[in-house]
Design a protein around this nucleic acid. Sequence first.
DNA 1: TATGCAGGGTGGTCAGACCACTCTTTTGAA
DNA 2: TTCAAAAGAGTGGTCTGACCACCCTGCATA
Lengths: 220, 220
Amino acid sequence: MQNSQSSSKRFLDIIGELQSLISEQKIEYGDRLPSERHLAEKLQVSRTAVREALRSMELLGLIETRRGEGTFLSDFKKHQLVEVLSTFIMQQARSIQDVVETRMIHERAAITTITENEELRMLPVWIGMQSKLRERESVFWRVDMVRETIVATENRLSLKIWFLLKQYSGVSFDVPIEADEEIAIVHELLDEMMAGNTEKALICYEKWMNQVEGERRETE
Amino acid sequence: MQNSQSSSKRFLDIIGELQSLISEQKIEYGDRLPSERHLAEKLQVSRTAVREALRSMELLGLIETRRGEGTFLSDFKKHQLVEVLSTFIMQQARSIQDVVETRMIHERAAITTITENEELRMLPVWIGMQSKLRERESVFWRVDMVRETIVATENRLSLKIWFLLKQYSGVSFDVPIEADEEIAIVHELLDEMMAGNTEKALICYEKWMNQVEGERRETE
DNA sequence: TATGCAGGGTGGTCAGACCACTCTTTTGAA
DNA sequence: TTCAAAAGAGTGGTCTGACCACCCTGCATA
């Protein structure tokens, strides 16, 4: 009977039922889902149908499967989605340039948000960042700096998008860096942000990105 | 033999092979893919495995299947992705507020890009937009205005993200509107953009969004 | 000529069978 | 008693073959 249910796709229904089941049973990230066989019985469909739904969710990074162990609700850390989208959707994008530009859109927006909000400027993370730079506590300060800025805006969606984009736009972004000159620029950026000077902060950011870009080209 | 191939997921391999096949055979958007049975034979796997891969791709909106007809390469217009993300990933996002804010990030960035680039300001689309507003050629000028702005930046990735976000942040966004006051604001926004005055243009934009937001709340 | 019906191809679903793997329990030898 | 090996149960991974619902086309019939 449920078959004749309009034109809705079966495996989409199953995904929906899985979502309900997950929220009902309060399954959290990392927890195990019922086995495919149990799900098939519970939902009154074949194991094949359950598997098609699960594979789709796996591709999206929503779940994780381990042979012999089970299916687990994922912490959305898997990047199959990214990989697949990279070869399909990104093909449509003009070029890698779009990715870089879009990433920068989110970064500029975050800087602006912080700079223009007095409360956010007071966060202890900035003090920590400054001393981190000074004492070279982490060699990943480049990515740390940007990430903390976006995190501070408390826009988790923007953070998520940024995180995805970052994986394309230059691997060098994640590479440890030890450049005094760059550290100086980031210091300046931080200072301008703390001073609430949006315009100058954005100029610093542009300067910084130009330097990073130049560096990237040299290594090619 | 192929089974013992490390730990890589079978259906991911199949998706990869499908991608190769699509680019080799120059299959374009809207074209039909080989049938599931043919693919299974060609790739030397069972139809089950092919289907799991296809269902995943369908969920992503990469393909479209029509019973009795076949499987077609999609123009990425389907929104299964959006629907699923809305209930899973968006759950993680602080709230719908994140979506709105992120959408506005892309809109502000587009306005800035246009305003600060003299060539882009010369595009005929703005003249057209102005007369469109004046003569009320389209009742969808609200969404038209924003879309055209982002289109003009030629960042297709940003456009794609914006399009997805738009579907959440207030359905009223797509509803025909006939408000003189709002038209006046958009006119002003256009004028400031054409004048290359970024700061004022952004202020206009904020004013506009505040009005739209107030309007939305009233109808609730 | 126009209509309708049958057949072939397609995706949708299912049941059942193995395999490979992981973990727990049981067993048996040191 | 201890602990390592073997057996079992449970899980995902894959495959086969079958049937259904649907779409299209071409042929036969009116």
